[in-house]
Design a protein around this nucleic acid. Structure first.
Length: 229
DNA sequence: GCGACAG
DNA sequence: ATCTTGTCGC
């Protein structure tokens, strides 16, 4: 049984302490097996209420064909506080993850990983709790500074916080805002960038993220499953 | 004291 | 994150 305080802290002070512990457990190199199933992870709040809907979209790699999906809904108590996002979204995400037939080989999470004030964004938190390889792909910056990103697709510049490189600002497409990539768990930054590019085709965001977002927000297509219990 | 601030 | 029509550009 997992330590509940790592998921349900009673106070902000405790939440911050738990983040520091989790950050220490993050594995920063490529310690994982072959990747055949890549999953996109996202949480939406249809209607703007307090009911969160987590969605996991598993794609085959490298074809990126949709393989399996899982969705879970739950009342969310923890408010959105910059820097504490994972305590708000992870509970329902873990529920969705449990509904998959088997664990994915790699997770691409919608949000920061190591590029966090305490190096514990939602991608690190989820990766450490499940011990699954994970990468954070965020649409905007939380912390860190960086130089302009070259226009070429695939170009990236380091995201820095003081003297440390905490992530990569990556141009997934020409003419669109770059995305913020950082390691979550068991993946190096250089490879994380490679994985994100390998999962990105014709849009700004990886296909994994897009598929998960469609399910979480209710914009998903029709056909087959996608629900659960 | 004044901004900044993943989703 | 969510609320929202039209509109500018390729």
């Amino acid at each position: 049984m997992t330590d509940r305080s790592l998921l349900q802290p009673r106070t902000v002070t405790e939440a911050i302490a738990r983040q520091r512990e989790i950050a220490r457990r993050v594995v920063c190199d490529d310690a994982h097996g072959p990747v055949r199933r890549v999953a996109g992870v996202d949480v939406g709040f249809p209607g703007g209420g307090t009911k969160g809907r987590a969605a996991i979209a598993v794609l085959e790699f490298p074809s990126l064909a949709l393989s399996e999906t899982a969705v879970a809904e739950a009342e969310v108590n923890f408010p959105y506080v910059p820097g504490l996002l994972s305590f708000r979204e992870l509970p329902v995400v873990l529920q969705a993850l449990e509904r998959l037939s088997s664990p994915p080989d790699l997770l691409l999470v919608d949000g920061q990983g190591w590029a966090h004030p305490r190096r514990c964004g939602i991608a690190c938190h989820l990766g450490v709790l499940t011990d699954l390889p994970s990468i954070g792909v965020a649409k905007s910056r939380l912390v860190g500074t960086h130089d302009p990103v070259p226009q070429e697709r695939g170009a990236w510049v380091p995201l820095r916080d003081g003297d440390e490189i905490i992530g990569a600002v990556l141009r997934t497409r020409v003419g669109v805002h770059p995305v913020y990539v950082s390691i979550g768990h068991r993946v190096s930054l250089a490879r994380a960038v490679d994985w994100v590019m390998a999962c990105t085709t014709r849009y700004r965001l990886p296909e994994t993220t897009r598929a998960a977002h469609a399910l979480a927000s209710g914009t998903a297509k029709k056909r087959g499953a996608g629900r659960g219990a």
